[in-house]
């Protein structure tokens, strides 16, 4: 069995309960590298993200990609494609999916993730990992021991 090198990527836009579990999960994988990536067009928001990220105190690096016109998909895909230095590398992209409690929530959320997933399918060496996140009134309840 050949050894596959793995890079794990999580796209983030702000520090929130949405990313806590994907971060935990990504760290638990026996990957060669795990990083968080943000596609940014607003420098103020990015500064805030940098600060919040440092405050988290985790050793997952935050990569910042600048995007002029506020686009997300194309710069994101471009970055993912750049991650493959050799043939035996694979990239895992973690995509948090909000578990919809009501039918209308499926329309209102997750479409960015769905678009990203659809675009990534075209790339043979990219694996998409969908992580369900439940949002309750008490944000920390789903993670209580």
């Amino acid at each position: 069995m050949t050894d596959i090198r793995i890079t794990v990527v999580l796209f983030v836009s702000q520090v929130s309960t949405l990313i806590a579990r994907p971060l935990a999960y990504g760290s638990s994988l026996a990957a060669d590298r795990f990083e968080a990536v943000t596609v940014s067009s607003d420098s103020a928001a990015t500064q805030r993200l940098r600060k919040d990220w440092a405050a988290l105190g985790i050793d997952v690096p935050l990569v910042i990609i600048w995007s002029e016109g506020g686009e997300f998909l194309r710069p994101a895909i471009k970055y993912v494609r750049s991650l493959r230095p050799a043939a035996d590398h694979s990239v895992l992209v973690l995509i948090p999916e909000l578990v919809a409690r009501h039918w209308y929530e499926t329309i209102l959320h997750n479409h960015a993730g769905a678009l990203l997933m659809a675009a990534l399918w075209e790339i043979p060496w990219v694996i998409v990992v969908s992580i369900p996140v439940r949002l309750d009134a008490k944000p920390n309840s789903q993670d209580s021991e």
Partner: peptide, 27 residues
């Protein structure tokens, strides 16, 4: 709805130490 979600997700509201301990836990 969006306001409610953003309140839940907002960085000010979450318990930062709790969040980072979750993020650091390796299940």
């Amino acid at each position: 709805h969006y306001q409610r979600i953003s309140r839940i997700l907002s960085p000010e509201r979450i318990d930062r130490s709790h969040l980072s301990s979750i993020a650091r836990s390796r299940p």
